[in-house]
Each structure stands twice: as C-alpha cells, then as structure tokens.
Design a protein around this nucleic acid. Structure first.
Length: 475
DNA sequence: GCCCACCGCGCG
DNA sequence: AAAGCGCGCGGTGGGC
C-alpha cells in the first residue's frame, strides 16, 4: 500500500476516520426476524431434502458413495451427473475436477439439479447471511469492520459481517436477508449510488470520445447498441425486450469485456440464457434462437481451446462483436490499454489518478483494471468524508451506517430527508468534480429510500421534484 | 480437534 | 492460442 502523494495519504487518513465513525454508528438489525427466517428456511430445507432423496438420482448417488453419500458435496454431485450419468461436461476446475457450479449445468435440463441448486441457494441464504448477521449482532446492531489497507486496488473491504455482499439480484434471497436490516426508530433507510462510476472513471483514464459520448448523451446506450449487434436486432426490438436482451448484453458481454474477458467465454452463457430465459425478437417476436437461425446462425459453435470460430455460429458472431467493440467503437480505449500495459512493463509500476502507486507483479487484465477500480472507489470515499463533515457541521441526527463500493447507506431522520439527499447530490455531482480536475465526465447519483421504520429491502427509487423534495418515483 | 487448499457464490 | 477485475465466507476433503 503506497499513497504516493500527500493528497492520497490525506484521503486514506480522512477515509479511516469516517469509516470508523460508520462502524461506531452500526447498522440496526432485527434478531427476532433473523431467528424466524432461519427457522422458516430450516423447515423448507427438510422438505426439499426429502424430495431430493426420493429422486432416482439419489439412488445412483447412494450406489456410488454408500454411507459416505453427502448431498451437500458438490464434488459428489459432479461425479454423479457427469461421471456416472454421463452428461456432457463443459467446465473443469483448475485442479481437473468436474466443475459443479450453477453454470456447469446451464446446458442441461435436469429437475434433480434444479431442485438441488434451489436448496443450495436457501442454505447459502441461511448459513452465510442470516446466521452470519445474527452471530455479529450485539443488542440489535452489527458493526462491521471496513478495511482500507487490505485491497490490492486500494478499494475497501468489509467483514464481520460483510455488508458488501448482501443479496440484491435474487428476489427471494434479497427479501430474506435485507428485511433483517431495519431503520432506527423514526428513521428511513436511504441508499445513494454513483451511477456507472467505473465506466465514468475509465473514460477519465482513456479519454475515449465514444465512451464519453455514451456517458454524456442520455439518448445513447452502449448496452443497447451491443445487444443490437449481438442478437442482430433493431433498436426497437431491443427496447421492447430491454430487460432481457439489453441487460444480457450489459452483464454477460460488455462488463466482462471491460474486465478483459473474451468472446469465446462470453458466448456460451449468452447462448444458454437466450433459451433458458426465453429471449424473443421483439415484443411479440419469435424465439431469439429461431431469429438467429433465419440469419444463418444455427449453433453455438466450438468454444474449446484452439477451436476456430466458424462462420454461421454464435461464437463467430460474438467474435465479430468483440472486434468491432475494441477495434472500431472503442479504438481510443484500446490504444490506452496498450500504452498503459507498455508503461507498466517498462517501469514495473503505474500511478493512479488519485495519487496511489500500484507496484508488483500483475497480469495484463489486473494492470488495466486496478487503477480504474481504485480511483472509482476513491470518488466514493472522498464523497463520504465530505458528507460526514457536513453531517457534523450541521449537527444532523442522520447517521451513515454503511458503504458498498459505490454507494452510501444511511439512517435518515425524516426532517433531514430532503437536505440529506440534496447534500449527497451536491457533493457527488458538483464538489467532487471541482476537487479533482481529472474527472472529465459528469457524475450522477441514484437514490432509494424506505418508509419511516422500514427495512433495507423495502427501499424504492426516489427523485427530486421541481420543489426540491425527494419523492418516490412512479407508483 | 485444528489447519489448509479448493470450490462455489454472494456483492460491486 | 486465448482463458473476466476486486473482495469475504462457509462447506468439503485431505492431512496432521
């Protein structure tokens, strides 16, 4: 860890102080709720376990492992499904075992495995999250440790409990866990996020004009454009199926590509998602795989090592999309990647825009990512320091209770609600840009809030009305 | 009983 | 041929 400028050191110092304040504040949790939820899952676990053990697959399992049979063993699951039952194995672990994570079964349609994964998900919910939070609760508050000195990119980490991996994407999991986090009496949970801060910071490093345009012009959308290329759809067809096609392009292609993934890794997951989640060519369109078939793309194609992408396969299309993304659309970004990597190779280190030194042995993708990830977090950290000082200055009742890489969670007093959100907005969209002149794109926030006395699960989007009041968005 | 590497999976 | 960034946590399986 090396803050290489006085300013960088100051940020670590001030950041440590504000994170300590957040730890001291603590996040309120409901122990009664946690106990009830744990109990509920345990009942469902028994039912699901019984159903699995009545399945014919379990007979096969017992034949192979006998008394050593263990339903919770992924190693055994992989051996049964791929080894004994002989289903096609697409992924191996680095040590040569059958990979048995969820994506290893994406191409299969086995009821036993579906039920197995549902059970595993419930157990994760209970054992990692609900029990983990409960065991850290003291008098109804958890006080996680935020670390600023442990992460290679100069981000923070969080532990005991980790507030930075609380379920959000899966509805059931999210509901189970986030309902445990409650506002203090008479307060509202408020969460404010930087929108797309890593992409914005990447634009600051690379100065790619196309990326900057995507950020500045709200009528453009790089994920939509990528979905059009990837699925051979019109803009309207993508918009009509936005939640599926556009978000798939975003999460399974664009983001992985920014992290340094490659087409033959992205393609299989997208190909499976298309079928599994019933993607269509427009609102009342035909299934996407049929649509692609009409355009001459009938199969996934060979994604194994050394395979050539054959024309007329989806892998080939993904390869073309990748080439146009990096050689054409984001040409300047690509040039930056080459220069950044060359600089690291010749000097053995790089400096971040926020004044930190990244030195050590890195792979290419790590070097390209480290500075961007760190600087993006430093935008949040600097804002957090400013926000806490503002709360102190005006002796506000509101307390910051957590931080999740690019978002701030607070227990906000209703009297302070509008002022608090106005302050966050001012700090992030105006003050931050004044403080760092390397920020050459706008910064924006999104805000969500619960009702008074609500939970972290109940938060809904809020926006500023013409009178400066922050109200719930449509419905 | 403890330690450790590996794996899978939650988040940004 | 290539092989997605950064974390924390719990379980398995092997070893002592």
């Amino acid at each position: 860890m090396k803050p290489a400028s006085r300013e960088a050191y100051q940020l670590m110092h001030d950041g440590s102080v504000v994170l300590a304040q957040i730890e001291h504040n603590g996040f309120r949790v409901s122990e009664a709720y946690l106990n009830a939820a744990i109990e509920e899952i345990t009942v469902r676990e028994a039912e699901l376990t019984a159903a699995l053990k009545a399945d014919v697959v379990w007979k096969t399992w017992a034949k192979k492992y006998g008394a050593a049979s263990k339903l919770s063993s992924r190693t055994q699951l992989g051996e049964i499904v791929f080894g004994v039952m002989g289903h096609e194995c697409r992924y191996k672990t680095p040590t040569g075992l059958y990979a048995a994570g969820e994506e290893a079964f994406d191409h299969l349609d086995l009821p036993f495995v579906r039920a197995y994964l549902e059970l595993a998900n419930l157990q994760k919910t209970r054992d990692t999250f609900l029990k983990g939070i409960l065991s850290e609760s003291v008098n109804g508050y958890v006080r996680p440790s935020f670390l600023l000195n442990s992460v290679i990119t100069y981000r923070s980490s969080c532990r005991d409990p980790n507030l930075q991996n609380v379920p959000a994407r899966n509805q059931q999991m999210s509901a189970y866990v986030r309902k445990a986090f409650v506002a203090r009496d008479g307060r509202r949970i408020v969460e404010t996020d930087f929108s797309g801060v890593e992409v914005r910071v990447a634009a600051c490093y690379t100065k790619d004009p196309v990326l900057i345009r995507y950020i500045e012009d709200p009528t453009t959308d790089m994920h939509r454009d990528t979905a059009m290329d990837m699925f051979l759809l019109t803009k309207e067809q993508v918009e009509e199926t936005r939640k599926k096609t556009r978000d798939c392009a975003k999460n399974m292609f664009v983001f992985p590509q920014f992290y340094g993934s490659v087409y033959f890794q992205c393609a299989p997951q997208i190909w499976d998602a298309m079928e599994r989640r019933d993607f269509r060519a427009g609102k009342d369109g035909i299934p996407l795989r049929q649509h692609l078939a009409k355009k001459g793309i009938k199969t996934l194609g060979d994604v194994n090592a050394g395979a050539d992408a054959v024309k007329g396969t989806f892998v080939h299309l993904a390869k073309k999309v990748e080439e146009s993304m990096w050689n054409d659309r984001f040409r300047v970004y690509t040039d930056w990647k080459r220069r950044w990597w060359d600089e690291y190779c010749s000097k053995g280190y790089v400096h971040t825009l926020t004044g930190f030194l990244s030195q050590g042995v890195y792979r290419r993708n790590q070097v390209l990512n480290t500075a961007i990830q760190g600087s993006a977090f430093h935008c949040l950290l600097w804002s957090l320091v400013r926000l806490q000082r503002w709360l102190n200055k005006w002796k506000m009742k509101t307390k910051i209770v957590g931080q999740i890489h690019d978002s701030i969670v607070a227990d906000v007093h209703p009297d302070e609600f509008d002022d608090y959100l106005a302050a966050v907005k001012q700090i992030i969209t105006v003050d931050l840009r004044r403080h760092w002149d390397w920020i050459i794109v706008p910064m924006e926030i999104e805000a969500e809030a619960s009702e008074v006395g609500g939970t972290w699960y109940e938060k809904r989007g809020v926006a500023e009305d013409e009178n400066g009041r922050w109200v719930y968005k449509n419905k």
